[in-house]
Simulated scan of single mutants.
Amino acid sequence: MSEQKGSHLNHIELWIQWKEHGDVEAKKRLIENHLGTVEYVSSRLAIGLPKNVSKDDLMSNGVMGLIDAIEKFDYKRGLQFETYASWRVRGAILDGLRQGDWVPRSVREKARKIEDAYQQLEQKYMRSVSDAEISNFLDVSEREFQTMLQDVAVMSITSLEDPIREEESETRMSLIVDEKAKNPDRSVNDFVLKDLLMKGIEKLTEKERTVVSLLYYEDLSLSEIAEVMSLSPSRISQLHSKAILRLRGALDKQRGLLMQDM
Rank of each mutant, 00 (worst) to 15 (best):
P233K: 00
A226E: 03
L14A: 02
Y125C: 00
K203G: 06
Y75L: 02
S156C: 15
E167Q: 15
S141T: 15
I12S: 09
V192I: 15
K19P: 10
E206P: 03
H240P: 00
Q17S: 12
L9F: 09
T83L: 10
G22S: 01
A226Y: 05
Y40A: 09
L45K: 04
H11Y: 12
Q120D: 15
D178G: 05
V41Q: 11
V41K: 07
S241C: 05
W102V: 13
L231K: 07
D178C: 02
L138R: 04
L204I: 05
H11S: 07
V192R: 15
K27R: 15
R165Q: 13
E122W: 08
I176Y: 09
M126C: 10
S42E: 08
M198T: 11
G256M: 00
L97A: 01
G36S: 11
P233N: 01
G100Q: 13
S187R: 15
E32K: 06
I176F: 10
Y217V: 04
L121E: 06
F81K: 02
K28M: 05
V53R: 05
L204W: 04
K199I: 01
W15M: 03
V177Y: 00
L14C: 01
K19Y: 09
V129P: 01
K76R: 15
K76M: 07
L214I: 00
E71P: 00
M148Q: 14
T37K: 06
R108G: 13
I16H: 14
K124N: 10
E218H: 13
A132W: 05
G48F: 12
L79K: 15
L94D: 14
S128T: 04
S213Y: 14
F145P: 02
L251A: 09
P184G: 03
E32I: 00
K180A: 09
G256Y: 00
I164C: 03
S156K: 05
E218N: 12
F73Q: 05
E115S: 13
V152R: 05
K253Y: 11
A85G: 05
S159I: 13
R186P: 00
L9C: 06
L35V: 12
Y84D: 02
Q123L: 11
E144H: 09
A92L: 12
K110S: 14
A85C: 09
M148S: 12
S141I: 03
L231P: 00
Q4W: 14
L14R: 01
E13C: 01
M229I: 02
D131A: 11
V152C: 09
G200V: 04
V152S: 08
L220W: 03
Q238E: 15
I47R: 09
T210I: 06
R248Y: 09
L257W: 09
D56W: 02
